[in-house]
C-alpha cells in the first residue's frame, strides 16, 4: 500500500524512533497524555523542529523539497493561530484565489465581508475557522491539526470537523488530528495512535 505521508525512524530530542503511514483521504488521530509529545510530533513533521529519520510525501524525500514548499504541503495548524497584520485577508498566502476563498468561507459559515474583518475583533471561533481556511488556500496534502478546536463551542467545533472531512474527501489529502476530547474522538473515527514514552503504539 502506498503512503501519502511516510515516516521512518523519526527522532527528535524527546521522541522516537517513530514510524507512521498516512494514506490519502485518511484521518488518523493522535492521542496521549499531556506532555507526551503530540505537538512535538506534528511540529517535527512540519519541519518546524529539528528531527532525523526519513519523512516522505508521496514517495518524495523531505530533504529534496524546499522548506517553504514542504510546509505549504504539510500544513501545521496550532490550537492558537497566529495573526500579525490588521485585516484577515492580509494573512492569506500570496496569490490566493478569491473564488476558492469564497467557497471555503461558505463552508465555514462565514460571510464574504470577513475577508476584511479586523483581527482584533475576531472571536476565538472565527479565528480558528479563518486560520484553517488560510491553510487550505495553500492546498496542503497533509493537515497536521494540533487541537484545532480547543476552547471552541460545539457549534464551531462541528463546523471545523465537517470542513476538514470534506477537504479530505474531495482532495485526496490526509490528516493527523490531535484531540483531547473523547466525544470528538468518537465523532472523528478512524485510526487512533497513542504516543507513549516517545513512541507510537
Amino acid at each position: 500500500m502506498d503512503c501519502l505521508l511516510e515516516v521512518e525512524g523519526l527522532r527528535t530530542a524527546q521522541l522516537g524512533p517513530l514510524d507512521l503511514c498516512l494514506q490519502a483521504g485518511e484521518l488518523v488521530q493522535i492521542s496521549g497524555a499531556s506532555g507526551s509529545g503530540k505537538s512535538l510530533l506534528l511540529r517535527a513533521l512540519a519541519d518546524l523542529d529539528p528531527s532525523s529519520g526519513a519523512v516522505r510525501l508521496a514517495g518524495q524525500d523531505r530533504e529534496g523539497i524546499e522548506p517553504p514548499d514542504w510546509r505549504r504541503q504539510v500544513a501545521y495548524v496550532p490550537a492558537e493561530t497566529a495573526w500579525w497584520a490588521s485585516e484577515v485577508a492580509e494573512h492569506f498566502p500570496s496569490g490566493w484565489d478569491k473564488g476558492q476563498a469564497l467557497a471555503w468561507l461558505e463552508r465555514f459559515s462565514l460571510p464574504e465581508e470577513s475577508l476584511r474583518w479586523e483581527i482584533e475583533r475576531l472571536s476565538s471561533g472565527e479565528r480558528q475557522r479563518l486560520g484553517l481556511l488560510r491553510a487550505f488556500l495553500n492546498r496542503p496534502r497533509v493537515l497536521l491539526l494540533d487541537e484545532p478546536t480547543a476552547n471552541l463551542d460545539l457549534e464551531n467545533t462541528r463546523r471545523i470537523e465537517r470542513a476538514v472531512r470534506s477537504y479530505l474527501a474531495e482532495g485526496g489529502a490526509g490528516a493527523l488530528w490531535v484531540s483531547h476530547d473523547t466525544l470528538q474522538r468518537s465523532r472523528l473515527g478512524g485510526r487512533i495512535l497513542e504516543i507513549r514514552g516517545g513512541r507510537l503504539v
Partner: peptide, 12 residues
Amino acid sequence: RVIEGRLALGDT
C-alpha cells in the same frame, strides 16, 4: 508564535 505561524504557511 507569529514567526512559526508564518513559516508554517510557507513563508521564508
